[in-house]
Nucleic acid binder design. Structure first.
Lengths: 201, 201, 201, 201
DNA sequence: GATGAATGAGCTTTCATTCAT
DNA sequence: AATGAATGAAAGCTCATTCAT
């Protein structure tokens, strides 16, 4: 970002532009979201856009960050106490995921689809960190001992498996399987996996 | 394809162009693979490219189809008899997947990453069909009865979970987890899932 | 037009571009009037051209419209009162036509020649409407009664006969007949035709 | 033409190519008639096309010439004796014109529309010559004396007026006037003109 | 003679970005 | 600060024509 938004007006402008970016992606897809279109949607000149952002990438980065923050906030609100039941926690997380991906008029789905062209490292890390910590605490409560490294692998697998399976499903024009069934399947699979073996994979 | 290659020379040309497309994607990414660049890499004029292919899309479609054929061939060679051991089968499939994705200088990975912009429906269906059939036979042998619908959901989940987890892993610049560990984790997870419950999820 | 010109500068730009289009057609013919050439003639980048016009067609449409307006203005200035003498009116119109077609370095001629590839419907209609109305008024004054439908046919015939005969003549490299003679011939023919019969053809 | 078609086969090839050109123009318009398309329609390679014709222009020239010959033949068959009635002669000519333009699936119309991009000088001259001669003979019979120069102007006017009025009419998507009415109008106008004045315009 | 593969200049169009106003 | 006019490299694609086979 070019400028620290210090004034009220500036913070407003940044907001507006990021909003416009989101809307533009929803309406035109990531590739169709051009700077002129975004500026127009924001009701602002291209020049102004570049006054607040270094370019298209920066704009999208800001959007991704904002969404990451939203997701983090959402996750924290989930009833996931490490003292609780594992299946319930996982179920809550997966249903939260579906809800999120189905919201925003396809914005989330479009962004996840294009993850490799976006600055998503941070988001991915956040998610992974969140679930890793959760798992750590959970297993600490329930088993006392557990190999952390192993947990990292498990977290990596379940986070990615879940997200991309969901996105693939939602992206299908004529899905052959129902979301509800996939949600239950994922829960089944992940619960089984997390409870499996001598915590050593 | 625009023209049925009638001479020896032209069949050669088609090959060369698809090869060039592959190399171009490897070197420049999918977005960077432009018709001028592909033609240049192929040592051919743009005009020639358009004599054989309707455009960029057709070129990529041809590449995808060729790769799909390769994958299908590879899958058939895998030692996966429905009479065999489930874990061994899954293990073989996953290791085959990693081998494939690690080959081709990142071509496979780049293509999977961009799945939603490619004519991949066929490939995805093929894979799913393949494993669905395999699962069907396997469970027929071992349990006699099983709900097919359910199998479809499971196949969908495991195929997508596996592929995208792998691609995400390989895409990381500084992976925090080792491929070997992820391979084992995936095997563990999938075997557990496929054996779980009264075949009803 | 793509953009409503908001600044002084941009209204200028639109003018410049339409001018350049006209000059380009004069110099290179309608087919030779390409967007790069027009932009260059205008002393402007191609990009700018596309900021103001949707493309070549839009550019030409703008030119045609401007010329149509000019023609309309010219026609209105002609001393053609329905109270006047028929031959004088027709003579004035035909001489105006020749003057117009001989002006603009051949621009008009080139455009009429290519009428079928241009958005000329409006122009043609305008002309026809103009003369139809004139004829209507004239005959109302002089004969009281006359079949209107018939007038429409007559107008169609004389407008097209006149214009294309003129254009064909001007297009000839080594005309075998003189413009003056053709002008008089046309006048003779049309006057005769308009006065002929019991207004029923 | 590159080659005098001396062998049976060659003459056949030339025929075939010119036929294909005609069909191609009908199907794709003059601009859409490309050499590859023509060759394909002819069931011949582009190479062969260039063996018999110097290029696209030559091909079209050949077509135009063939059509000119057809027209000339048709004109000669018309019952137009200079001893006959003027109106009947003109009527026959105009009806012949409409018949021709309505035939050939629009080929004639498309060619006349694009007259200025075609080698039509000869065709035009032929037509003009034909009617000039006819007029000369006619007036010789009926009036003994008449100024030839004047006849040339008249011929020029009536030929062009007629043809382009017809083509304009046929080109209209939703004609506001009927062909029959226009035919009669043209006849009226031309007869009047040819009979007008002391043969001096 | 016949073939059709190969050419490449040139067209239309887009869009991230700059900079004079 | 804000504007939006201007840029121009680069993309996708066509087609008349040539020439090795």
């Amino acid at each position: 970002m070019r400028k620290r938004p210090q004034q009220q007006r500036s913070r407003q402008m940044v907001e507006t532009l990021v909003d416009a970016t989101a809307r533009c992606i929803v309406e035109n897809g990531l590739d169709g979201a051009t700077t002129p279109r975004i500026a127009e949607l924001a009701g602002v000149s291209v020049g102004s856009l570049y006054q607040y952002f270094d370019g298209k990438e920066a704009l999208i980065e800001a959007l991704v960050e904002r969404m990451a923050a939203d997701i983090a906030k959402g996750l924290k609100r989930l009833p996931m106490e490490p003292t609780g039941n594992l299946r319930d926690m996982i179920s809550a997380a997966i249903r939260f995921g579906f809800t999120l991906l189905n919201s925003g008029d396809g914005l989330y789905v479009e962004l996840v689809r294009n993850w490799h062209r976006l600055p998503t490292q941070k988001v991915a890390d956040t998610l992974q960190q969140h679930f890793l910590e959760l798992a750590r605490l959970y297993f600490l409560k329930h088993y006392r001992e557990h190999p952390v490294e192993n947990l990292q692998v498990r977290t990596f697998i379940i986070v990615n498996s879940t997200i991309f399976t969901m996105v693939r499903l939602i992206s299908q024009d004529h899905p052959l399987v129902r979301q509800e069934d996939v949600a239950e399947g994922l829960i089944e699979m992940i619960v089984g996996y997390m409870e499996s073996g001598p915590q050593a994979a």
